[in-house]
Design a protein around this nucleic acid. Structure first.
Lengths: 104, 104
DNA sequence: TTCTCATATTGACAAAAGTTGATTTGAGGA
DNA sequence: TCCTCAAATCAACTTTTGTCAATATGAGAA
C-alpha cells in the first residue's frame, strides 16, 4: 500500500513539469483536443500522451472522448481538491479547520 | 532566461516528494530544528539538507539560524503564494466563443 | 471486411532527481 | 588559537522522469 505522502505527491506532480503547465495554461481558455495541444506546445505526439495521462490521473484534467478525438479540459472538482490539499498541507495544525488527507 | 513555466514548476516541486511532504507534515505542529526532522523522518543528514534546500528555495518553508542550529517552519507568505499560483493555473479564463477544433 | 487517422503504448535512451558516505564549512565553547 | 558539532556540500551511484521513434489499438469511414 502506498503512503498518503506518495499519493499526495502524485497530485502535485501535475504542476511540476514545464510542459504540463503549458497544457494547463492552454486549457484555461477552454476544452482542447490533443491535436491542438500538440501544435500549441510544439511537442511530440507520444510526449503529449504521456503528460496527459499524468494530468488526467492527478484529477486536475478530465478527458472526453468524441469519435476518434479526445478533448481535454480543466476539471473544476479536481482543481478544487488540489487546492484543498495544498491548503491542508501548509496550514499549521492549531489553525486547521478540516482534513481530507487519508480519509482522516 | 528561464520560462515562467519552469519557475512555477519549481514552486510545486516542494510538494512532489514523499520526504518533503513528511517534512511539511512535521512542521505543521510548529517550528522544528533539523536534528528533530532527521529523527522524525528517519532520513540521512545530507538527504534532509538536500530536501530542506528545495523547500526553502520554493518559499514554502523558512529557515531561522540560532547558534549552530537551524530551525525550520512553514512560511505563511510562501504558502499563500503557492496557493494563489495554483488557483491561477487552474482557473479558466472568461468564457469565450466555442473554438473550432478538429474540424468541428 | 479493410483503410485511415487519432491516440496509446512500448522500448531504448537521456536527463534529472534522490540517496549515501565522506568531507567541508562555520559558529560556539574551551 | 583549537576542538566540537550542526549543517552544507561533494562525488559516486541508483532511481525516476521525460523524449523519441516505432508499433499497437481502436473507432469511423469505405
Amino acid at each position: 500500500m502506498e503512503s498518503c505522502y506518495i499519493q499526495n505527491a502524485k497530485v502535485f506532480k501535475a504542476f511540476c513539469d514545464e510542459n504540463r503547465l503549458k497544457v494547463l495554461e492552454s486549457l484555461r481558455s477552454g476544452e482542447k483536443c490533443a491535436c491542438v495541444l500538440i501544435e500549441d506546445l510544439a511537442i511530440g505526439q507520444s510526449a503529449l500522451s504521456y503528460h496527459m495521462k499524468i494530468l488526467v490521473e492527478s484529477g486536475v484534467v478530465s478527458a472526453r472522448q468524441e469519435g476518434k478525438w479526445t478533448h481535454y479540459s480543466i476539471s473544476p472538482a479536481g482543481s478544487a481538491r488540489a487546492m484543498e490539499l495544498l491548503r491542508e498541507i501548509t496550514t499549521p495544525l492549531e489553525a486547521q479547520e478540516d482534513s481530507i488527507c487519508c480519509g482522516r
